[in-house]
Design a protein around this nucleic acid. Structure first.
Lengths: 137, 137
DNA sequence: TGTATCCCTGTACCCAAGTACGGAGTCAAG
DNA sequence: CTTGACTCCGTACTTGGGTACAGGGATACA
């Protein structure tokens, strides 16, 4: 006999495996309203549609791009209107953010590199790392 | 009359102001063992020496360089031996870390920039941001 | 001497993004 | 029909880096 609903979509475990995420994480996304609860088939067990899984994988990809869950929620809201301008605003803000972070890290990189370089070159007696970082006593 | 001890060093509030940090933060550093408790003069009020304040300011500077409090504790441990090689190892590890972060952020930057650029150029109908980030339905 | 401003300890709370777990229900295979 | 793997819900805990009180001392200045 053909059980119509039960096999439509995947279980939470399969969805989790598909996007390489913890089952508890998916539940957490439900809790905070980031991912709508999928329909239940017969029993109490949820079935995740292809769309649900795609939404989940979007969340992970956006996270990798440095978006917070709040920002991701905002982006997912935009899906309803498909407002190109709003999405671009968010993307541009995030781009500015990332650019600033890169600049900050670059100056840290330069400083650390110069410390290491001078440390390698110099005598052990006056290690520039200690001089720069630990000006105690 | 000359009160010898009481005026040696500064109070927590002055120390906090000197390195632009919250009083509670200093107490927190004591709690986690990052900053040793300074001696008390007469009453129960702590007096922070110049060295204490320098140590505190080192913590903040190292934080700005991206070191975690754990790593900073490690660096402060090294002060005892002044082991140049160990310090260089830590600095080099952090440098590698920072370099990797920059690389990650750069690819994110490229991707976001290309999305924004294409979004500006294209027609509103097929916004690349939605296509790239929201491949739902 | 009053009062205003610090300081003390201890405890609880904050944020983001989860993770862990207990106790019960469900489902498929053997 | 039992076993084992999976799922449910709810609640509590985690990490890192702090903040915020409450309820008392201490100190400084007029």
């Amino acid at each position: 006999m053909w059980k119509e609903d039960v096999t439509v979509g995947v279980t939470i475990g399969q969805a989790a495996k598909a996007v390489d995420v913890n089952v508890e994480t998916i539940r957490y996304y439900h809790r905070i309203g980031l991912l709508p609860l999928p329909p239940r088939a017969h029993g109490s067990i949820r079935r995740y549609s292809i769309d649900s899984v795609r939404r989940l994988s979007f969340i992970r990809r956006a996270q990798q791009l440095g978006f917070s869950l709040d920002e991701i929620a905002e982006l997912l809201q935009l899906e309803k209107t498909r407002s190109c301008g709003s999405a671009r605003n968010i993307a541009e803000a995030k781009l500015a953010d990332v650019t600033r972070k890169i600049a900050d890290l670059s100056s840290i990189q330069n400083y650390l590199a110069s410390l290491v370089r001078r440390c390698k070159a110099g005598k052990t007696a006056d290690c520039p790392i200690f001089e720069a970082l630990l000006p105690l006593s």
